[in-house]
Simulated scan of single mutants.
Amino acid sequence: MDRRDFNVMLAGMGLTMGHGRIRKASASTARVEAFTLHSNDWVPNNSRLPVIVYRNALEAGSGRESVYEDLFNRNGWPSRWRNGVYSFHHYHSLGHEVLGFSNGSARLMLGGPSGRAVDVRGGDIALLPAGTGHCNLGSDADFTVIGAYPPEQDFDILRAAPTPEQLARIQSLPFPMTDPVQGKGGALSREWHPS
C-alpha cells in the first residue's frame, strides 16, 4: 500500500499522521467567524443565534468525507447526507444544520436574497441556525458537502415565508448540547446563548 492510500485509510478512521505518529483528526485550531443574520425579505434567518464558520477546520481532499462524518458523530450531531448545497434560496425549520465542505469550493449566499455572500472551500465547516437562508451561487465540480443535525432534529426545505407555526418551531428548537466541530466548550458554547 502506498503512502497516499494509507493516508486515505487513516482519514476514513478519523485519524491523521502528525510528526510521524498517528493522532485523532482535530478541528480545535480552526479560525472561527461568527455573524448574525436578521430577517431578510421572506427568509426568517435567526436573529438570536449567529452563523458560525470554522475556517480550515479539517484537512480537505477527495475521500475525506468520512472524517467529517466521524467528527460530527463524535460530537453528537449525527451525519445524515453527502451532496452539495441547492442553487435556490431555502431554509430549514426542523433543525439547526452543520455543513462540512470536504472538497472543492463554492460561493454561498447566506441569509436569503441580498444576504451575505460567503466563499467556502474544502476544510471549512459552516453551522447554520434554523431559519438561516442558504443558496449555492456557484461551485466547482469537486464541491462536496456533508450535512448533520442535532439529535431529534431534521431538515425540511422551505422556499417561502414561514407560517406562524414554522416560525415558532425555529425559535423553540432544543438547544444543541455540543459544538458539532469542536465539542464541549467549542465556539457554539461561546457564540450561541439560549434565551
Score class of each variant (00 low, 15 high):
Leu127Pro: 02
Arg190Pro: 01
Tyr54Gln: 02
Ala34Arg: 06
Gln166Tyr: 06
Ala148Phe: 05
Glu152Tyr: 04
Gly111Glu: 11
Asn103Asp: 09
His96Lys: 03
Ser62Phe: 13
Gly185Tyr: 06
Phe72Leu: 11
Trp81Ser: 10
Asn83Met: 03
Arg80Asn: 12
Phe88Asn: 10
Thr29Pro: 01
Val43Arg: 01
Gly104Tyr: 13
Asp156Glu: 04
Ala160Cys: 12
Leu108Val: 14
Gly20Tyr: 14
Asp41Pro: 00
Glu69Leu: 09
Ser139Thr: 01
Trp81Gln: 11
Arg82Lys: 14
Ala126Gln: 13
Glu165Thr: 07
Leu110Val: 12
Gly123Tyr: 06
Thr16Arg: 10
Ile22Asn: 04
Ala161Asn: 05
Tyr149Arg: 04
Gly112Pro: 02
Pro180Glu: 14
Leu37Thr: 06
His193Arg: 12
Asp2Cys: 03
Ala30His: 00
Ala11Asp: 03
Ser79Pro: 04
Glu97Thr: 06
Gly138Phe: 08
Met109Gly: 05
Val53Lys: 00
Leu108His: 06
Leu137Ser: 02
Asp70Tyr: 12
Tyr91Phe: 12
Leu37Glu: 13
Ser26Ala: 07
His38Ala: 14
Arg74Ile: 06
Val118Gln: 02
Ser102His: 01
Pro162Arg: 05
Thr36Gly: 03
Ala161Val: 12
Ile22Glu: 08
Ala160Gly: 07
Pro164Thr: 14
Asn56Lys: 10
Tyr86Val: 03
Gln153Trp: 03
Leu127His: 01
